[in-house]
Amino acid sequence: MIQVLLNGIIVGGLYALISVGFALIFSSVRFYHLAYGSLAFFGAYITYVFRYSVGLNFFLSMILSSIIFGFVGILFWKMFYSPLQKKKTSSVSMIVASFGLLIVLQNVMSLIFGNGGKSISIHDNLSQGYEFFNLFITYNQLVILAVTIIVGILFEFMMNKMKFGMSIKAVGQNNDLAMTVGINYESVMNYVFFIATFLSVIGASLISLEIGIRPIYGFHIILKIIVACVIGGMGKVKGAIAGAMMLGIIENFGIYFFGSIWQDTIAFALLTLFLVFRPKGVFE
């Protein structure tokens, strides 16, 4: 049982890394950036390219591709979303447009890298797992846990102690008020999209350590992230982390009790129940 809980926490941590960015974007622009998931896995593909075609160390390739994709994220904002928002497009239309972008990205990925899966590993030879107090954890999982915790702490520090982090929060809480005290909306948006996409690529690269990369995963992950954010309350960064953790744990217990074929069904049933009965999330 505790083993299931541990696995749930690891999966939840991965979801959390990606959900945080999604919630950050939602809190400042109020729409669902669906192409976000595909962007994250595109980043994971680039990590793959750095790791195997260029031959860099896994961590270095992950950080390099995250930085590159941070800028791609800004580009998405500037090229696609900002013009739409200036036309006062409704949030439903935004979802549809963003979905169009997701389809484009996913198919560009399968054109370049093929539909088959690619797998990434940290070392060339397989490394064995560890056992603490009867709990079994693989080397990859240990790395995932460590990176998640480090990134989480850095993120918290940035949001609470540094100036641009606080201005992101301000825009999230009250856009108009933030602008009247002299916060530059456009530059805050750049930070938001950079940080969010950066985190998502790290998350996606870590996920690909466990399950490999396929173009369709971008779509799968965005659905899971939406579920996590809805559970935690849409647009709340802390809520997204908690929701992601809960989703990871519930999913793993679901697998333990009902078998892995019902994993997605459980997640989407949760989404429906939360949206209908508790749309503000668990924490109000």
């Binding site: 036309k87 497009t89 549809v96 169009g100 389809i103 484009v104 198919n107 054109l111």
Partner: peptide, 23 residues
């Protein structure tokens, strides 16, 4: 071999452009 993907890329862009120019 690239037919299906190209098709879907076109659909995706079409969706985006429609929302942009003629909702």
């Amino acid at each position: 071999s690239i037919m299906a993907e190209t098709q879907q890329i076109i659909y995706g862009f079409l969706l985006f452009l429609l929302i942009y120019f003629r909702p």
